[in-house]
Each structure stands twice: as structure tokens, then as C-alpha cells.
């Protein structure tokens, strides 16, 4: 059984009860269909492929480039006060 509440908390989504039920069903069906995959057994040191690229050591020098002007950055902020991005209060 997939815990939809936990999953929504992790993914920061608020689903309606109908959406939650529907998606839960779909996800559980998907997991059921993946039983053979879950049973695959690789040795612990089997290589992982994270990306098809085989590069290594893609690095840059420690040099300062120009930043982006603040007003341009804040243009895309959901809320701001000209200096800071603004968010609702955080309860510590």
C-alpha cells in the first residue's frame, strides 16, 4: 500500500481525494507490474550509468564572472520587495 499522504508531503502536492485515489491506484498498478524488475539481483559493485556521457573532470577556474542584475532576477519571483524574494512566514 502506497502512503499517499507521505508521497504528497515529499513531492509537495495537494491532491484532491479523487485525484489521490486515482493516482494511488495507478501507482500501485505500476508497482505490481514491476515485480520482476524489483527481483533483479545485481552484485553490489555492478556499475551504474548515471548519464551516457563518459567525461570526467569538467571543471572551471576560480574566477568571478558578472552576476545578474537584481531587478532582472526578481522579475520572475512570485513575490519580492525589491531587495529580497518574499515567502510566507516560516514557523520555526
Amino acid at each position: 500500500m502506497i502512503n499517499m499522504k507521505t508521497l504528497q508531503d515529499l513531492t509537495m502536492l495537494a491532491l484532491s481525494p479523487e485525484e489521490s485515489t486515482q493516482l494511488q491506484g495507478e501507482l500501485e498498478q505500476k508497482i505490481a507490474g514491476m515485480a520482476e524488475f524489483a527481483a533483479l539481483d545485481f552484485p553490489a559493485d555492478a556499475p551504474l550509468c548515471v548519464t551516457p556521457l563518459t567525461h570526467t573532470n569538467m571543471m572551471r577556474d576560480d574566477v568571478v564572472h558578472t552576476h545578474t542584475p537584481r531587478e532582472v532576477l526578481l522579475q520572475n519571483a512570485p513575490a519580492h520587495n525589491g531587495e529580497y524574494y518574499a515567502a510566507p512566514a516560516i514557523q520555526e
Binding site: 572551471r60 576560480d62 574566477v63 568571478v64 564572472h65 552576476h67 545578474t68 537584481r70 532576477l73 526578481l74 531587495e83 529580497y84 524574494y85
Partner: peptide, 26 residues
């Protein structure tokens, strides 16, 4: 270091808010 770990913005302390920021670190 002079610049950030994944972009070329300055790491200098004490700058006005959001003035050492680029689309990467934003």
C-alpha cells in the same frame, strides 16, 4: 574561494541582498 562552487558568482561577504546571484544559483 573567489567564486561559488557551481557558478561564477562572487562569494564575498556582506554584499546587498541578491546582488551576487545568477540564474544558476537562483
Amino acid at each position: 574561494t573567489k567564486s561559488k562552487i557551481f557558478c561564477g558568482c562572487s562569494t564575498e561577504f556582506g554584499a546587498p541582498p541578491n546582488t551576487h546571484v545568477c540564474p544558476g544559483c537562483a
